[in-house]
């Protein structure tokens, strides 16, 4: 349950939606994508309302959701815009696989690749149409810590190569700090039902960022405080 959300995101910006589990981060993301409709209020991309399953945005889900009977390349193909001819399509797929460093795996089936690779395929599929808005629903949540760091760096590279507006749902404070221009913290107040924006935080610094910088450390403490977790900062 969400209420009173007002948020404007600039083109090319990376916004992280951060909050505890069940606070409605994913719901908000699904509404931006047009997969779910809000019960009240309006959502617009470039001043026109979001359509059901709006094709101006593309989603990478929490799970890779690859078609198990298709190869990696054919799965990426699913994300291509309609009306692209075969040769252009194949070129685009090859380019995307290069971008997510999976050219060598083009012919493999999803069951033959690792979880991190599957998430990269899912990311490439979402990028295939060159979406104006890229929506990422905890895309690295199920990955091990090291793979997650690699994937975050990869996302920074991708954003540089194809600067889409990115809305990223995460419960990982460090991930939000490493990637986002702005962090939108969602939360509930005990006196009112429904989650809403409890804090918006600008994150300074060009990417890739030094994860241990003083500024980020201070912001981390602030976010953890807001999330109700003792940060032990300066303890």
């Amino acid at each position: 349950m969400l209420r009173d959300i007002q948020l404007e995101i600039a083109p090319g910006e990376i916004v992280a939606l951060l909050g505890p589990s069940g606070c409605g981060k994913s719901t908000l993301l699904r509404q931006i994508s047009g997969l779910d409709r809000p019960t009240a209020g309006t959502l617009t991309i470039d001043r026109t309302a979001v359509a059901p399953a709006d094709q101006r945005s593309a989603v990478a889900f929490q799970e890779p959701r690859l078609l198990p009977w298709r190869t990696v390349a054919r799965n990426v193909e699913l994300g291509l815009p309609r009306g692209l001819d075969r040769r252009q399509g194949a070129e685009r797929v090859a380019e995307l696989l290069e971008l997510v460093q999976l050219s060598h795996a083009a012919g493999l089936k999803p069951r033959e690749i690792s979880g991190g690779m599957a998430q990269r395929v899912s990311l490439a599929r979402a990028l295939a149409r060159g979406p104006g808005v890229l929506l990422l629903d905890e895309p690295f949540g199920a990955l091990d810590a090291l793979t997650r760091l690699t994937m975050q760096d990869l996302l920074v590279d991708i954003h540089r190569a194809e600067p889409a507006t990115i809305v990223l749902v995460t419960h990982d404070v460090d991930e939000a700090l490493a990637l986002a221009d702005r962090i939108v913290l969602l939360g509930t107040r005990h006196d009112r039902p429904g989650a809403t924006i409890s804090m918006i935080l600008d994150v300074p610094g060009a990417r890739p960022r030094d994860r241990a910088s003083v500024v980020l450390t201070r912001l981390r403490a602030k976010l953890l405080d807001a999330l109700g977790v003792p940060s032990h900062h300066g303890a």
Binding site: E63, P64, R65, L66, L67, P68, P110, R111, E112, I113, S114, G115, M117, A118
Partner: peptide, 13 residues
């Protein structure tokens, strides 16, 4: 087979 079939090797067959 196909309920578990999406996704990656960890899901397994």
């Amino acid at each position: 087979q196909f309920v578990s079939g999406y996704g990656y090797s960890a899901a397994g067959r």
